[in-house]
Design a binder for these strands. Sequence first.
DNA 1: ACCACATTGTCGGCTGCCTGACAGTGTAGT
DNA 2: ACTACACTGTCAGGCAGCCGACAATGTGGT
Lengths: 228, 228
Amino acid sequence: MAEPQKDLVEGSPLVLSSREKELIRRIGVTVSYPKGQIIFSAEEVADRVYLIEKGWIRIYRLSSDGREVTVGSIRNPGEMMGLAETLYHGKRTCFAGAISNVTMVVVTKKDFLDLLTDEHHLALKVTQLLAARMREAEAMVHELVCWQVPSRLALLLLKISERCGIPDEGGMKIKLRLTHEDIAGMIGTTRQTVTSLLNTFKREKLVECQGREIKILDPKKLTSWIVE
Amino acid sequence: MAEPQKDLVEGSPLVLSSREKELIRRIGVTVSYPKGQIIFSAEEVADRVYLIEKGWIRIYRLSSDGREVTVGSIRNPGEMMGLAETLYHGKRTCFAGAISNVTMVVVTKKDFLDLLTDEHHLALKVTQLLAARMREAEAMVHELVCWQVPSRLALLLLKISERCGIPDEGGMKIKLRLTHEDIAGMIGTTRQTVTSLLNTFKREKLVECQGREIKILDPKKLTSWIVE
DNA sequence: ACCACATTGTCGGCTGCCTGACAGTGTAGT
DNA sequence: ACTACACTGTCAGGCAGCCGACAATGTGGT
């Protein structure tokens, strides 16, 4: 906690180079979906991968009582999605839903595998990408096991602001328009707990909410809420 | 629950072919470690990957209060280990400790990357391997969020018996000699809870313990303890 | 065979967070 | 502009599982 927060957000970006993206665009088809659209569902055959050009997508599972649990993170523009399921088992285990309007390149499994065979460099990059996500998933497991809810919420806010926040007077603005229920599903808690905790953060002037947009005012103090 | 338990244990095997293992042996060095040995530690430079020939290894993180949290699973003979950290960031985030005496092939990062470049097939296999583990990690997150402790323990026992149990009169014997504390660290609970829950399972004749070995007597009934 | 230490068994008290419930407020659609 | 519905705010009650403590038992090392 005292030491620099270097590894606070583990395994973050690792983006594709523009050349790599171009390779994918060349063999794929560009499509657009409106906000709210479900891109793929659990149990479907995983026969394609996606490169997100614009917008954000949430990867989640459905629990038996209908709760949506965000097991991966939110996928940002420039990231790929649907990799693990397509490369490994062939069937989706997650849902992917568009948080905003999105534009993405769709590539069939076959074409993608062919591309990987031709372009070693890209293949290595994809492997690294999975490795980065692997670390992130392991960190998530650790946090769920060892941390209390307030710490997990604080870290989530910091992560999101780092990855998709835009600077705004006095802080970083998060324009994803997530509901408290969405947030609860990302950190393994309930809607009510998120509501009251966010209000605590507001009272302490760590964050500010207007409508469904959250602005991080004091990331440093927010970090101090992270206790193991 | 009613449907066949096909996907109960997600993302499991996916082993290397003997030809693939041979490729790795050819560029690596075979070494042995005694039970209890730490193979690598967090913060170390991740400049090598391992192929386990014999024995079991546990991948875990250390929480600030000293608890060991098993974030990956246990790595079995035939599996590779240290991949994600070596391929991605370059620094270990986990510890790897030998649960039993182990024999493994050690390969330097450079040699391994060269091999991947020469052997496309192996590169793809490694990618698939990471993809499989990715799924497993996501399943773990889901379980931690949605399931109670008894369900998580039941699933763990089933998983372990499936992966490293050996058939024995009346059930599958697990020879890993895990302590209740070890088990607690794998499912995110405390030692005491594991103790009392295991005793409940014993009383119901689902499992049997002799010394530190656990025998799964009734996997079917154990499955029925898994409730969402 | 012995001893020191690690592991298991058990229990009572405590608490963080979930559950359910309901009122107030925002927001999208017609 | 109005309506229906989705989201936020708040609170009381309950409980799963954590924490600490201690005794009993097992186990590895010499």
